[in-house]
Design a protein around this nucleic acid. Structure first.
Lengths: 158, 158
DNA sequence: GCATGTCTACTCGGATAACGACTGTCCGAGTGCCCCTGG
DNA sequence: CCAGGGGCACTCGGACAGTCGTTATCCGAGTAGACATGC
């Protein structure tokens, strides 16, 4: 039960983009420098966000990434799902149907109770993440931090 | 975000023990055969449960494992915690304090909003698992399956 | 017949390889801007 | 002065190693019971 660090990075970066004027484009290099992240490795995660439509990539000079849709339309779950796959942390291997004590298939019409439990716990985790958007997270950023970020990042873009 | 398969195995085995008369001892070899699991590898997980006090191990002939306490006193979370560590799926690396856009420590007295979110989602997951005990899971086992398991496993112990 | 000592078989536990996923790094493909040149 | 074309710098994207955790396997330490033996 471990999340790749890409989750933390991407959430921070999404919030960072949300702090800037809408449709602002930020190159990967600036994102990486801003938080001291390895630029090349970061690329791998950003690509996944692009594939999921959360980020939008533009190539060439003045290119970079921008939010794929409004910050209020992106939930934390969307980010986690794009990076981790969004599948249940395990898929029941139906071991009750294996080995000497195996049950016959017709005895297993009801889903394995353990699988049901894990699924419902996973749903709870998912539901919590779905309840918070990037916009919500952005609102919590102190004003002076947002101002500082804007100055630093927009200045370079001029 | 992936759980080791040991979680499924151990939950099934705990439920299996709960189906038998209290304090029944079952050797590792029988457990493994019953569900068709690799016996040697299973040992690693069982040891973790023993360390956590969920299972109790007895060595020598007629030895094996039994539940460390009543099935109603063991939650699914206890098992997951014993195997996975029970820690939050990521610990915030405070990347907001790194890189060129770093915030100063005195600006970060409030916990990172992203960390707070992940923690609350993790608590939801944990809470769900804490709400179900091995006894609850055992109740869902069909009567004829429980009977069959008792016959098979207790017979060998005679 | 009973107590005792030894021996065996059975159990768990720790140490040791093989595999796969996550992490980290490099270079190539594509594009928009800028500058130079010619009219 | 203006239009067009070429070159360049900048961007993302995919391909290639390194490291760590999970998976899998083996063998050794310890114990409880059973058996044989002597009283």
């Amino acid at each position: 039960m471990k999340l790749s660090q890409g989750v933390e990075w991407c959430l921070h970066l999404a919030v960072l983009l949300a702090q800037l004027p809408e449709n602002t484009i930020l190159p990967r290099s600036q994102m990486a420098r801003h938080h001291g992240l390895p630029e090349d490795y970061l690329a791998k995660y950003l690509k996944q966000l692009v594939n999921a439509g959360i980020f939008q990539a533009t190539t060439g000079p003045r290119g970079g990434y921008r939010l794929g849709r409004g910050a209020a339309q992106i939930t934390a779950w969307d980010v986690v799902e794009a990076l981790e796959g969004g599948q249940s942390p395990f898929h029941c291997q139906e071991i009750r149907q294996c080995g000497e004590g195996a049950a016959r298939p017709e005895e297993c019409l009801k889903t394995c109770g353990i699988q049901v439990l894990i699924d419902s716990a996973f749903e709870a985790w998912k539901y919590t993440l779905q309840g918070v958007t990037i916009a919500n997270l952005e609102e919590e950023v102190p004003d002076f931090v947002r101002e500082r970020n804007r100055r630093r990042l927009l200045q370079a873009g001029t």
